[in-house]
Nucleic acid binder design. Structure first.
Lengths: 204, 204
DNA sequence: GTGTACCGATACGCCGACGTATCGTACGCT
DNA sequence: AGCGTACGATACGTCGGCGTATCGGTACAC
């Protein structure tokens, strides 16, 4: 056969599944999700794009929703949790910078899981725990820090809407304008809507 | 009219398709869309729930996406276009009242069409022209009227985000809190975020 | 060197949905 | 009264995806 020398990637896939290999599966799942939606994601497709056999997939995960749920759980972006610039406005500016960069991928992913999430309990929990909660939790923590620092009052009526606003606009722009909500757009939104509503000065 | 006996519905459906009957098809399509998503919407299902045969469906519409597109085009709720209270704040309060009532149906519908819309050109146009454009156009017209009346400056930076904010929050709440964005929620959002960002006084 | 566990390929059964075709018949018009 | 049109029922071919099963072969441990 072929001389399987240094490239462990292309030719021989006979070794046990390493963590890196596992991540390749997950990446393929997420990519196919974004491109074609949940229903058009097929086990055959994942197998083909990762050059494994269906047997391998079904050995590791029982069913298609479980594979997808597992893939979602690797999405845990803890990036937002690390942000702490010392001011609420500064934190949120960092948030929109990150969100704008990941706008396309996250938006498509959410869109793809739209209704599938309503049918499968495990899928719903995976999406919430792995994607929604971490990001939204981080934002709400920023707001709480802002309250503690006295930047905004604890019962500011706009406080409850910060995360919904950001997530909402992120998903709304593609529908309204046909373009992703990139960082400049999100920044304009933050400075001219979110921060003013909170009583904080926006960069004009 | 065909004043058959009392039960024109259950037994014999042999008459030609009246406009009312046609609307029954569309309603069934939209309902199944909202309940199960686009991919799980089946011609068999529509036929069964409307007690017609598949032949009839395929005689009227060539394919499944065309049936769905036709159903979408009957959604044209021009209700928002009729709103004109004399002030921007008043107009928007009417908008959230309507939107809150239709929240569940509209949100689910958008969610259901998520990725299908990316695959089929006709479907995409139908959704835009029948659902998105009318509502968003009405809101933007309200903003323009507000500018003409001098309520807000023409270049107010928050003006471009009014429709995106409302649509976004409408779709975001179910994801974040697991509940629909009803009228009270939308009203709070309007008074504490949208109006303040525009420099208008919100009802506290 | 021997063994075992795991991988890849592939074939299979099953099901459900699309879209077509056929046929009998009720409707509604003239 | 008669006739054509469109409807309802249903069967059919096709396709594609899920999940299972079988089998040969290879990597890695011992």
């Amino acid at each position: 056969m072929t001389s399987q020398s240094a490239d462990a990637v292309s030719s021989s896939r006979r070794s046990k599944i390493t963590p890196e290999r596992e991540q390749e599966f997950y990446d393929a799942v997420l990519q196919q999700l974004r491109e074609n939606g949940y229903d058009s994601l097929t086990m055959e497709g994942v197998a083909a794009s990762t050059r494994c056999s269906k047997s391998t997939l079904y050995r590791q995960w029982k069913t298609k929703p479980q594979l997808v749920a597992a893939a979602l759980r690797t999405c845990s972006r803890t990036s937002l949790a690390d942000i702490d610039t010392g001011s609420l406005a500064g934190d949120l500016r960092e948030v929109v910078r990150h969100a704008g960069e990941r706008s396309y991928k996250d938006t498509r992913l959410m869109q793809a899981l739209g209704h599938a999430v309503l049918q499968d309990e495990e899928l719903r929990r995976a999406l919430r725990e792995a994607v929604v909660e971490p990001e939204i939790g981080a934002i709400e923590e920023m707001v709480r820090r802002g309250v503690r620092r006295g930047e905004i009052p604890a019962d500011h009526p706009a406080a409850e809407f910060v995360s919904a606003q950001l997530l909402g606009v992120l998903r709304a722009r593609p529908l309204l304008e046909g373009r992703d909500a990139d960082t400049p757009y999100l920044t304009r939104f933050l400075e001219s809507c979110v921060l003013p509503a909170l009583g904080l000065p926006g960069n004009t």
